[in-house]
């Protein structure tokens, strides 16, 4: 019989036991402080769980419903509104990459300013598109967070626009001044198609704390969730565009029958003994039925 040894699992329990008792001792000492920390942790866990639930219960169904959307404007609007609702953001913008290598504003919404432009709303977005490359030098334009996000094909976030040095937020600041608004946190997510080509950018403004409704930075987990939603949205957009090309072909509706090929196939079948027999029997049968009926 082999000598029983302490398995690695048992080693682990030893370590676990030591840790647990240490924690117990520390717990006794730290008392009150630990309790608030535990509460915070619990709340954190609770939030993570809600996020996971949200993902399973919202993001996946949204992705599915996006695929079923057959009107482009409604599809774009759905993408933006669902992303905004999931992230509890106050505002959002959806850009599409144009063949001229610019980012075109297709839709802008903002709850507290009660703005909705583009999408299915009657108001058109009148803002000029953002150049992805400098018109003179051809250099990539990394000045704006949205263009940088599109160029780098990576999601990017800024916690506070007014303390951020990396990007040029003069556009957002001018907007704030004009609208008496305060842009704080920004998240940009690229919409990549199956070939990893960026076809658009989803931008969300001013995330809100679910408990206090105060504007906060976009949490890393939220960023992940938006990246996933971005994937689903891009897939839906891609399939819409594919169907659209398909439809355009059919709307043109040239029903073309290759008559020669058809004749060949028909002749091949009708000349078989089986078909001839069937033809005769069918005729007899119908004649008989006719005879019965008359």
């Amino acid at each position: 019989m082999p000598i029983p040894t302490l398995s690695p699992v048992w080693n682990f329990y030893w370590a676990y036991g030591i840790c647990a008792s240490l924690l117990g001792v520390i717990g006794l000492y730290v008392g009150q402080k630990t309790r608030t920390r535990t509460m915070q942790l619990l709340r954190q866990v609770e939030r993570e769980k809600t996020r996971a639930d949200k993902f399973a219960n919202f993001v996946i169904p949204i992705g599915l419903s996006l695929t079923a959307e057959t009107n482009l404007n409604q599809l774009l609007e759905k993408i933006l509104l669902e992303a905004k609702a999931l992230s509890l953001a106050d505002g959002g913008t959806l850009y599409l990459v144009t063949p001229e290598k610019t980012l075109r504003f297709v839709m802008i919404v903002n709850d507290s300013l009660k703005i909705a432009m583009g999408g299915t709303s009657i108001k058109e977005v009148s803002l000029p598109p953002l150049n992805l490359y400098d018109a003179d030098t051809g250099a990539p334009n990394h000045k704006n967070i949205a263009t940088s996000c599109a160029l780098g094909a990576k999601s990017m976030s800024v916690d506070d626009v007014y303390t951020e040095k990396g990007f040029d937020f003069s556009g957002a600041k001018a907007f704030d001044q004009r609208m008496n608004y305060r842009t704080i946190s920004v998240l940009c997510v690229p919409l990549k198609d199956a070939q990893q080509k960026v076809i658009g950018v989803l931008q969300l403004i001013n995330a809100q704390d679910p408990d206090t409704s105060r504007v906060v930075a976009f949490a890393p987990q939220l960023r992940q969730m938006m990246e996933l939603l971005g994937l689903l949205a891009a897939a839906a957009l891609g399939s819409y565009l594919r169907i659209k090309t398909l439809t355009d072909q059919i709307v043109d509706l040239k029903i073309q029958i290759d008559e020669a090929k058809k004749e060949r196939q028909v002749t091949e079948i009708t000349e078989s003994d089986y078909f001839k027999g069937l033809q005769t029997r069918a005729r007899e049968m119908r004649a008989k039925v006719k005879g019965q009926n008359s």
Partner: peptide, 27 residues
Amino acid sequence: AVTVELAKKLDVPQMLLVINKALPSMN
């Protein structure tokens, strides 16, 4: 087109076509 031709040769008294899965954007 092939099937219609064959059915005509078999003297089927009533033939009906049904177009399915038409995209809503079509006319």
